[in-house]
Measured scan of single mutants.
Amino acid sequence: MASQGTKRSYEQMETDGERQNATEIRASVGKMIGGIGRFYIQMCTELKLSDYEGRLIQNSLTIERMVLSAFDERRNKYLEEHPSAGKDPKKTGGPIYRRVNGKWMRELILYDKEEIRRIWRQANNGDDATAGLTHMMIWHSNLNDATYQRTRALVRTGMDPRMCSLMQGSTLPRRSGAAGAAVKGVGTMVMELVRMIKRGINDRNFWRGENGRKTRIAYERMCNILKGKFQTAAQKAMMDQVRESRNPGNAEFEDLTFLARSALILRGSVAHKSCLPACVYGPAVASGYDFEREGYSLVGIDPFRLLQNSQVYSLIRPNENPAHKSQLVWMACHSAAFEDLRVLSFIKGTKVLPRGKLSTRGVQIASNENMETMESSTLELRSRYWAIRTRSGGNTNQQRASAGQISIQPTFSVQRNLPFDRTTIMAAFNGNTEGRTSDMRTEIIRMMESARPEDVSFQGRGVFELSDEKAASPIVPSFDMSNEGSYFFGDNAEEYDN
């Protein structure tokens, strides 16, 4: 783990906690998980779902989305002020799938948001429990990260689609708070800032007046979040320049895209947490497990152990491969979309394939898809080993990566060399080191050039047997250095459309 220093740990961010010791953190995270579980059980009762239907990941996603929508204050306010045809701002819903006479049927349900809020609060001892809501947002974000390569979004903001390893959390809503900021990748933060800068260039009043003052505060806050992700002084200094700019424009845009590229080699610290679907927490609570009393951590053995003992089902389209669908969801559960496939294969105990080789589309089923041909199958979400999630980018030494994705962002704290394609990355730096950030740029390029592919990161860190909950005997895996390590390699994943 990167030293926490003055930073709060993510469990504290996750639970809005002030400084807590490890036991208190485990208890408050457990409380959050228990609340999600209780809410899910109650919703299944309301909807009269069978046990099997309640364990269907598509039903879980609909129920999670309903509660997130019920608590989305800004959108609710907007919907009330701008009524649109056929949208009731006070209601929320989605597809629920039921097994009827041996076939899967889709039923569109509609609930009062007020009623959903009441059920959620009741499951969370009367609190709004925003930490639990954020947790579900991060699960949705991790699922998107594993399912889609955001080529269009990258290109629109002047970045290269091969930089997708920097895009963790790119679909997280803005209201996801400190826990959300911690899991956002460098590219995601750059993209958010670039969008602001572009608006400022096109709209003279963007930075002016009372609204402009708020915009400015948001801009500086985002700059500080991004600065905190960088691990070298030169990158941090460049972020200070971007933040202090009187009138952010093209120079800042250039600096930010430069920094994003540099992060492929001088990786930023991005938190990883295993956020599971509500249909995993519900049955665990129903079986009598007391998360608050037992304590829970999002970055240790607990999620692995929970998945070892969970039964989750998914709808499967006619030509999809259930094992591939399982891999997709497994990666999402562990926030591992940008991790090295060699490491993932070792931990999972079966070969993890790149996205383009998977015969599976996303987990969600569109409303126009034919239910007649839908089957369902068990998702295999178990693992051979477990490993500690990392909050750091690993040290800054790398190795060759593949054509589709030119770097990785480690999820697990496991000893290995970190793949990246130096030639491709360095070719993108057209040696432009003039301007006010020239000395920093020169320094950053120097550090990137001296990074050695064969150097090892996370020295001495290994994986653990599932029986080793105290992480007492690390097993340090050895990897084939020459092997392909990137998930979005030469990829044809669908595009994420909101």
Score class of each variant (00 low, 15 high):
residue 361 R to N: 04
residue 309 N to Y: 07
residue 407 S to G: 10
residue 148 Y to K: 03
residue 229 K to N: 14
residue 374 M to R: 08
residue 82 H to M: 02
residue 342 R to Y: 14
residue 49 L to T: 01
residue 194 V to P: 00
residue 250 N to I: 04
residue 201 I to K: 00
residue 133 L to S: 03
residue 459 Q to V: 13
residue 313 Y to P: 07
residue 299 V to H: 04
residue 249 G to E: 13
residue 239 M to T: 15
residue 85 A to G: 15
residue 299 V to C: 09
residue 206 F to H: 05
residue 111 Y to M: 11
residue 464 F to I: 12
residue 113 K to Q: 12
residue 128 D to I: 13
residue 453 P to I: 14
residue 43 M to V: 10
residue 141 S to V: 11
residue 481 M to L: 08
residue 160 D to T: 02
residue 459 Q to D: 14
residue 285 V to S: 14
residue 294 E to N: 15
residue 475 I to S: 07
residue 278 A to R: 00
residue 353 L to Y: 04
residue 422 R to E: 02
residue 489 F to I: 13
residue 178 A to E: 07
residue 54 G to S: 15
residue 147 T to E: 03
residue 113 K to A: 04
residue 353 L to E: 02
residue 372 E to R: 08
residue 38 R to V: 06
residue 417 N to Q: 13
residue 119 I to Q: 06
residue 397 N to D: 12
residue 98 R to S: 13
residue 131 A to Q: 15
residue 120 W to C: 12
residue 71 F to M: 06
residue 67 V to W: 03
residue 343 V to M: 10
residue 185 G to L: 04
residue 165 S to N: 15
residue 286 A to F: 05
residue 307 L to K: 01
residue 383 S to V: 12
residue 118 R to W: 07
residue 398 Q to M: 15
residue 35 G to K: 06
residue 300 G to L: 01
residue 482 S to C: 13
residue 56 L to R: 01
residue 140 H to I: 13
residue 87 K to F: 07
residue 447 M to I: 15
residue 463 V to L: 10
residue 262 S to T: 11
residue 249 G to H: 01
residue 147 T to P: 03
residue 278 A to W: 04
residue 222 M to F: 05
residue 176 S to D: 03
residue 17 G to H: 05
residue 203 D to V: 06
residue 294 E to D: 15
residue 46 E to W: 05
residue 293 R to G: 03
residue 187 G to S: 12
residue 5 G to W: 01
residue 375 E to D: 11
residue 411 T to M: 10
residue 446 R to Q: 12
residue 78 Y to P: 05
residue 415 Q to L: 06
residue 410 P to I: 02
residue 122 Q to K: 14
residue 124 N to K: 08
residue 410 P to L: 09
residue 75 R to L: 09
residue 112 D to C: 12
residue 478 S to V: 02
residue 115 E to A: 05
residue 169 G to V: 05
residue 491 D to T: 07
residue 379 L to N: 01
residue 415 Q to D: 02
residue 403 A to L: 08
residue 210 E to V: 09
residue 211 N to C: 15
residue 120 W to S: 12
